[in-house]
Design a binder for these strands. Structure first.
Length: 370
DNA sequence: GACACGTGGAG
DNA sequence: TCTCCAAGTGT
């Protein structure tokens, strides 16, 4: 019969063993990523650059590693340190972020850089509270930077960790309620050394072994301690609430092309959907699928011709845009609009949905120069 | 706590 | 085609 003290000690032993096995696995199987300092370099005393850790963590929020890689390299190329980014034009940052999505991240990134650049030595805070106070840095990112950049213990809990831990301990409580329990487990496992490697090891395990579908349990260093493996259905975890169905909206978009190939654009409001990004003029995007999408609401009268319909899926709705095109001969840009030269189009802060619209009207227009 | 907020890839 | 989702944050 185990006393409460014994059971706590037992739990700690299990957690410690898991951490040790995970780190041994990580030493051999860790992913090589552009923003990462591998264990071999850490052992030689090389420390990660907090700027790169921060930049990568912001980019990786709800975004795949493969999508982030080229953007990370481009940002580092243009702005090698936080002072450089702080001195950049916000518009240039938005242009460089275009296509990566969740554009409030880019605006917060710029404000955060400016804030950090004013701190002594332009150094990032080395603790969760200090980091958490910066725009764009929430509980996950604060813990990630604290552990990865500064090697200080912090409970890094992202989607990977949630999946790994709910499976390890067969936690059937639905997310996000399960987070309290998950955090308790992670904090116990943290007692081991190498906080930064531990955090990245958990994420690598979740990304390569303990995957959402068809996890490779036979290759998992933790299978002997995994409760879900015993139950035979690790895919059951984590339990998540059902998603709301995605509504559909509709509108019209107007691509005005000048004789020299320039396209009429305008800037979206700073906040909200695609905030601060560039777009072609469009009607409102109404919930009414049968709503009027005619040429009435074009930015100016012209010989508008239908150029097809594009469909774009956002997180919380699907958008159908009827695309119209017109040749605009010597038209002055309406208030709030501007002409973008053909050669500049590819470099504008155009979100993917708008590139899709322009491509429907002028094939290849947004790809020149790439 | 609920919802807004992008995108492209995988199965 | 369609669903799920990938290193979440802000309001």
């Amino acid at each position: 019969m185990a006393s409460p003290t014994d059971s706590r000690k037992l739990a700690t032993d299990v957690d410690g063993r898991i951490a040790t096995l995970l780190l041994e696995w990580y030493d051999v199987h860790h992913r090589e990523l552009p923003w990462r300092t591998p264990p071999s370099e850490l052992k030689r005393g090389i420390r990660p650059d907090p700027y790169r850790v921060w930049l990568s963590e912001i980019m990786l929020q709800q975004t795949t590693v493969e999508a982030v890689k080229p953007y990370f390299r481009a940002f580092l190329d243009k702005w090698p340190d936080v002072a450089a980014l702080a001195a950049a034009e916000t518009e240039d940052v938005m242009k460089a972020w275009a296509g990566l999505g969740y554009y409030s991240r880019a605006r917060n990134l710029k404000v955060c850089a400016e804030t950090v650049a004013r701190l002594p030595g332009s150094r990032f805070p080395d603790n969760e509270d200090g980091l958490r106070a910066l725009p764009g840095i929430g509980p996950y990112t604060a813990a990630a930077i604290t552990s990865i950049a500064f090697n200080r213990p912090a409970a890094v809990i992202d989607g990977n960790v949630e999946r790994v831990v709910t499976r390890l301990f067969s936690i059937a409580t639905p997310l996000p309620q399960a987070k309290v329990e998950i955090r308790a487990h992670v904090e116990r496992m943290l007692a081991a050394a190498r906080p930064g490697d531990f955090a990245q090891a958990m994420m690598d395990l979740g990304a390569t072994i303990c995957t959402p579908r068809r996890p490779r349990c036979m290759l998992c260093p933790l299978r002997a301690d995994c409760s879900a493996v015993v139950s035979g259905d690790p895919e059951f975890y984590p339990v998540k609430p059902a998603k709301a169905e995605r509504p559909r909206r509709r509108g019209a978009a107007f691509v005005a092309v000048r004789s020299d190939g320039a396209v009429l654009l305008r800037k979206r409001p700073g906040k909200g959907l695609l905030g601060g990004m560039t777009e072609v003029p469009t009607t409102d995007w109404t919930a009414r699928v049968d709503g009027a999408t005619g040429v009435d609401s074009a930015p100016f009268a012209a010989n508008w011709q239908r150029a097809g319909t594009i469909t774009h899926v956002f997180t919380h709705f699907t958008l159908d845009l009827d695309v119209f095109r017109a040749e605009a001969t010597s038209v002055q840009a309406p208030d709030g609009h501007f002409w973008s030269a053909a050669a500049d189009l590819a470099g504008e802060a155009l979100p993917s949905v708008m590139k899709k619209v322009i491509e429907a009207a002028i094939p290849g227009a947004t790809k020149r120069g790439l």
